[in-house]
Write a protein that binds this DNA or RNA. Structure first.
Lengths: 235, 235
DNA sequence: TCCTGGCTCCCCATTTTTGGGGAGTAGCAA
DNA sequence: TTGCTACTCCCCAAAAATGGGGAGCCAGGA
C-alpha cells in the first residue's frame, strides 16, 4: 500500500471510522509507533482517531490531562509543527505525564502539527515513535511536508463530517449593523459608538437589536461573540 | 530560478521587504498575473506583500473593501483553499467589486488559501491570473500542494517578524476566569453563569474583572471579543 | 405602483452591569 | 516561613443596557 493509495482513501472517507482505519494504515506505512488525529470542534467537543491504546485514551480523559499536556499547550501557541523535544518539560507534572505516557506505549519521540479551522476549530495531528533522536530527526526531515498535507486532509474530512450535521447559515448584517457590532467589539460603549457613527444612541440600539436577532444571540456580548467567531466582523 | 531556490530564499528572509521580492519571483516562476500574501495580525493591523498594483491596494484600503470582499468573507468561514469561482458573487456590490478589481489588473481567476495562526491570527495567500476556467483548473490541480506549503512558509515568516517587534503577550487566564469568559461568550448573563459555575454572582464578577484587566479590555463585551480573537477561549 | 428593507429618531420603566472598596481560605514554591 | 496566586464572599451607588412601544424617509425590486 503506497502513500498515494492512503491519501486517496482518505479523500474518499465517509465517516469517522474511516479516519481511524487510515491512521493505522499510515502507521504501518511509515513503520512508526503511532499516528493520531485529535480534534476539538467549535463547540468544545473532542474527538480523536488514532493508534493509541484505549487504556491510554481513557486514562488521558479521566485524568483531564488535556489541561496540562505540554503538547496541547505548546501547539496552541505555535504555528509551526513541533518536535516534542522542543517543548517545555521542566515542570514536575509535565515530566510525570511524559513518563506515564511512555509507560502506556506512546513513543518517546513525537512530532505534532497544529491545525486551525474557522470558528476557532483546532486540531492536532501527531506522529510518534520509539527511536533515537537522530533517527527521528531524519524521519521528520524526510516526511514533514507529506505529514502536513495529510494532516490537512484529515482536518478537511473532520470539518466535512461536522458540517453535515449542524450548520446555521451565517446571517447578513447591514453596513450599519456591522459598524455597530464592530465598535462594540472594540470596546466602545453604546454612547461612544453612537457618537463615532454620528447617530443617536437610540438609533444605534436599533442596529444592535437587529444584529442580535439576526445572529440569534441572547444579549449584546453574545451577539459580538457570534459575529466574531462566524467571521461576520473582524476586529 | 527554480521553485527550490525560491523556497530556500523564503526561508532566509529577514524582513517584510524580502517577502515582497519573493512574491514577485513566484509570480514570474509560475508565469501568472499575481501572487499576494495578506495578513491581519492579532491586534487588527494589516500588512501585505504582493504584486497587486499600488493603485489597487490604495483603492482597496480607501474604500474599505475589506468589509465586503467575498474572498475575505469566504476564507474566514472555510478551511480549504478556495477558487474564486466557488464564492458567492450574487450580490450587487460583490459584482461591482469584482469588476473594479479586474479593471485594476487583478486576474479574473483566483485561488486563495486561508491560513490561521495562534491568537486568532489570520492570513490569505492568493494566486491570481488572467485565463480561461480550464487553464486555471489545470494550474491549480498541478500546484495546489506546493502553493499550500509556500503559503505556510510565508506565514511562518510573518509570525517570526511580528514576534521580533511587538507582542502583547497573551495573558494567561485562570481556569475560573476562562470559564467565566466562556459562559459570557455563550450568551449567559452573569447571574446564569454564576449559577452554572455554582458560585455567587459576586465571585463571578471578580473573575470577569480580573479577566478584563488581564486582557486590557474596556468592558465585558470587549474582554470577550479579545479573548475570542486571541484564541484564549473558544466557543 | 406598492412593498420591503435599511436608516433615522423618540418615549418609558426595569433589569443588569460596572467601579470602587474590603476580607478570608487554600495551595504551591522559593 | 513568607510570599504569591487562585478562589470565594460581601456592600453600595451610579451608569449602562434591555425590552417594549411608535413613526417618518428613501431607495430599489416585484
Amino acid at each position: 500500500m503506497t502513500l498515494e493509495d492512503i491519501t486517496e482513501q482518505l479523500q474518499r472517507a465517509r465517516a469517522l471510522e474511516d479516519l481511524q482505519v487510515i491512521t493505522e494504515q499510515l502507521r504501518d506505512f511509515y513503520t512508526i509507533t503511532h499516528i493520531v488525529y485529535h480534534w476539538v470542534n467549535s463547540i468544545g467537543e473532542r474527538f480523536g482517531a488514532g493508534t493509541y491504546s484505549t487504556d491510554w485514551v481513557d486514562r488521558y480523559l479521566e485524568k483531564d490531562y488535556l489541561r496540562m499536556d505540554p503538547v496541547i499547550f505548546g501547539c496552541l501557541q505555535r504555528f509551526n509543527p513541533v518536535d516534542w523535544k522542543q517543548l517545555d518539560w521542566s515542570t514536575k507534572p509535565a515530566r510525570a505525564f511524559l513518563k506515564e505516557a511512555i509507560e502506556f506505549g506512546v513513543g518517546n519521540q513525537g512530532y505534532t502539527i497544529p491545525i486551525r479551522g474557522p470558528n476557532g476549530q483546532f486540531a492536532l495531528f501527531t506522529a510518534s515513535h520509539h527511536s533515537s533522536d537522530l533517527e527521528w530527526e531524519a524521519f521528520i526531515q524526510a516526511n514533514a511536508r507529506d505529514l502536513m498535507i495529510i494532516a490537512h486532509e484529515f482536518n478537511k474530512k473532520a470539518l466535512e463530517f461536522e458540517n453535515k450535521t449542524e450548520t446555521m447559515p451565517v446571517p447578513t448584517l447591514s453596513p450599519r449593523e456591522l459598524m455597530a457590532m464592530t465598535f462594540l467589539a472594540k470596546g466602545f460603549s453604546r454612547a461612544q459608538a453612537a457618537d463615532e457613527l454620528q447617530i443617536s444612541e437610540h438609533t444605534l440600539r436599533v442596529y444592535i437589536e437587529a444584529a442580535r436577532h439576526k445572529l440569534g444571540a441572547l444579549n449584546t456580548t453574545h451577539a459580538v461573540a457570534r459575529a466574531l467567531s462566524s467571521g461576520v466582523i473582524v476586529v
